[in-house]
Design a protein around this nucleic acid. Structure first.
Lengths: 195, 195
DNA sequence: GTCTATATATAGATAGAC
DNA sequence: GTCTATCTATATATAGAC
């Protein structure tokens, strides 16, 4: 499953052959079919692997006390993984984009569910911050991540990740804190202008 | 070329066969090879077609007097095409994402160039608005578009496009106008909160 | 320049020895 | 449960008649 996740991320689902995954896992091709009946099941396994990684990450972040701090740390994690994003894009996002082109097999919905996991977790953080539209804010944050990953990848430019990451951190810092009694810590700052 | 652009957008480059494109163009398969030596050349033609459509759009928008109005109209155009984005994603973005998985052929750079066209045009508008970091703002706006398209597509939810579009319009409206002598028209408004 | 028939390569999947 | 050999289907690409 780990080999499938990595190879599918790097080569894309369609360009990845069973032989590629078998080689990465150092097993003969025929052996793969003992555990996965079809190639689609291997892709599904890769998706599950990405979902697992995501759960590990959010589990770590949940140990932080402040929801705002959790979101900031999430953004910092994205930026820290910029090199792989520049070369291959976001693992879940690029896979979802590819699978959504299909109209049979149901793998597209599977990919959507993994994206949902992230959006829902982020929305939960915004809700804890007392924000009025946590789902909308979550779509904004996750959408910004998907967009900057795609642009960094397409333009082969890691500074897209660092620059947009800075902007997101500034935005998160500017959100009013409902727990504070004496107003927000700093003035609002629109995206791209947060300096 | 039009058939190639449409079919490749809908099915993805890898899943599209020459026969698919030939059928869409209503010509026999063998005939395709008289004009395009390889499948990669067909994909390149699809990219060129998308670049052409983009130039038509920016050409239209250039006829508007105000750069801010041009950007707002651009966002409105994206939102108006939400149904196709929900089903197949952004034509250029999804294609770039797919082609960037390759490490030979140079088609990935070709896709990056088309994205660049859009980013550069948007940056030009921000520059005309007197903004300090037009390139950064352009990456923010185009990134937001790519992100909301991917999420709308993965979650099969058109309201992602309308909601995020509203947010972007609010943001564009809140940018200070350097041509005005009596300060910005309204207070700043961070993304997702612009209401 | 258009079209049919076909060659060639490769990938998904299976059979069956071990 | 592991592995080799092979079947079968399909897609790119070409040959050659018209």
């Amino acid at each position: 499953m780990a080999a499938a996740a990595q190879v599918v991320h790097r080569q894309g689902a369609e360009r990845t052959t069973i032989a590629d995954i078998a080689r990465a896992a150092d097993v003969p091709v025929g052996n793969v079919y003992y555990y996965f009946k079809t190639k689609d099941e291997l892709v599904k396994a890769a998706l599950a692997e990405h979902a697992h990684q995501l759960e590990l990450l959010t589990g770590e972040l949940d140990r932080l006390g402040d929801p705002r701090e959790r979101l900031k740390r999430l953004v910092e994690t994205w930026v820290s993984q910029r090199d792989v994003a520049v070369r291959y894009g976001c693992p879940t996002g690029t896979l979802a984009s590819e699978l959504d082109k299909r109209d049979e097999g149901g793998l597209d919905e599977e990919a959507g569910r993994v994206i949902r996991l992230l959006v829902d977790w982020v929305a939960g953080q915004f809700a804890q911050l007392g924000q009025p539209d946590p789902e909308g804010l979550a779509l904004t944050l996750v959408g910004a991540y998907q967009g900057m990953s795609l642009l960094a990848n397409a333009l082969r430019d890691p500074t897209v990740m660092t620059r947009q990451g800075e902007r997101l951190l500034g935005w998160l810092g500017s959100l009013p804190d409902p727990l504070a009694t004496d107003g927000p810590p700093a003035g609002d700052s629109p995206p791209g202008e947060g300096r």
